[in-house]
Design a protein around this nucleic acid. Structure first.
Lengths: 226, 226
DNA sequence: CCGACTTTGTGAATGCGTTCACGAACGCGT
DNA sequence: ACGCGTTCGTGAACGCATTCACAAAGTCGG
């Protein structure tokens, strides 16, 4: 009754299931490909194929954003890109600080996908004095002591940790203290963060061990079956 | 009746839920830390804290491997490490081929976690002739044309893709054709694999966009709430 | 040897995510 | 204008994962 039109769209945002959120970036990439290939519209089936999921999932996921499809036709590619970008908050530019400029840090700093989706690297930071001053990906590596300053003056809300495991929790605490509210951890260790700080982790060793499990499973059941 | 004792343990392996499998490597790392700290036994509560989960989950997960705890005491650290390693197939040495020796490929090749858990890099491969012959992490980069040979002679069952997105599907197909049955994909693209081939992906851009979503959510609800 | 205490292992309950299946809505050809 | 074929949006059913809560099983001090 007293609900405003503008609020309906906002309410949509509020509770998109995590699982759906995790797929939206994949749809976004698939849509870019489709747009490049000249597609103006795409059906849930077509997008599903491009994104490697099934069409029911696509429709359910997109329904959380609103009703932007046309029955009998599909979704307009450009429009969908726009709505997904909106939902993900990609219309604004997020600033990122990258801590740890070792092998992996170099690779991350040079990753083109950063800039292409509106993420700006506001600073590179390392604890090793020998690395401070070095130029990487067009930026000068600064001391870890300047972390708080980089975060504050750079308007940084996202921190990426690419340090050795031993340093990760300290760095994490410093990031949180400086006001960072989202952290992406590449260090092979479990981090503790206070409520309200979003933490995600990428762990190569874990991924390999999961693959190992499946390989092992195959070889065991294969031996029994043969 | 006709069930053999040996089969009971095997049967345990057979159906560990995916979600549990994904946590076992984390427990393993936590246990290493606990062992280094001198702990001989650990309770589900203690392990849960170290692994960043809750104790009920730990007990449920470990129950899939068998009954290796002692009520009133907890789990013996060494023994648990052994059983988890067994379940994950880490008692045997897996050979890995890494395709794409760019920035990320370098970082991956130099990653210590590879060797520490029994993964052997059987070969580095790249399509760029300028890179072939280069020495990285103690290995000589070989041509992509030699991929099949590297896989066959190296006994490789796991492939890691660290190429640009455009090359990833071709490389993936070549890996599968050469006999690789597990693939870890770092390229920002969706890959198609036949049944029976395990595929996992690590995608920096996706992770950042998920964080972006949560940042966006916070800033929106924060504005409304204030 | 026994009773108090601790901690596991697991059925039961709950919650979340995926899939199914179909009514509603739209474009298009005639 | 109208019916046909297509595709969305979504309630309902299902299955997997997490959490709860407690009996069973062990340790340990006295």
């Amino acid at each position: 009754m007293s609900e405003q039109g503008g609020f309906t769209a906002s309410a949509r945002h509020r509770d998109i299931p995590e699982a759906s959120v995790a797929r939206l970036p994949v749809y976004l990439r698939a849509l870019s490909g489709l747009a490049d290939a000249g597609h103006v519209t795409v059906s849930s089936e077509g997008l599903a194929t491009a994104a490697g999921v099934n069409s029911a999932k696509v429709r359910k996921d997109l329904s959380h954003l609103g009703s932007y499809g046309t029955r009998g036709v599909g979704y307009e590619v450009d429009e969908l890109v726009h709505h997904i970008s909106n939902a993900l908050g990609l219309t604004q530019r997020w600033s990122v600080v990258l801590v740890g400029v070792g092998n992996l840090g170099h690779a991350l700093a040079g990753y083109a996908g950063f800039a292409s989706r509106g993420f700006r690297i506001a600073g590179l930071v390392d604890a090793d004095p020998a690395r401070v001053g070095e130029r990487v990906a067009g930026l000068t590596v600064r001391s870890i002591d300047e972390l708080a300053e980089v975060v504050t003056t750079g308007g940084v809300s996202i921190g990426v940790i690419a340090t050795p495991a031993g340093a990760a929790q300290v760095v994490c605490d410093q990031l949180v203290a400086a006001g960072v509210t989202s952290i992406l951890n590449f260090a092979p260790t479990v981090l503790q963060v206070p409520d309200g700080v979003e933490l995600r982790k990428v762990d190569l060793a874990v991924e390999l061990q999961i693959l190992s499990f499946h390989e092992h499973r195959k070889s065991v059941s294969g031996a029994v079956g043969a």
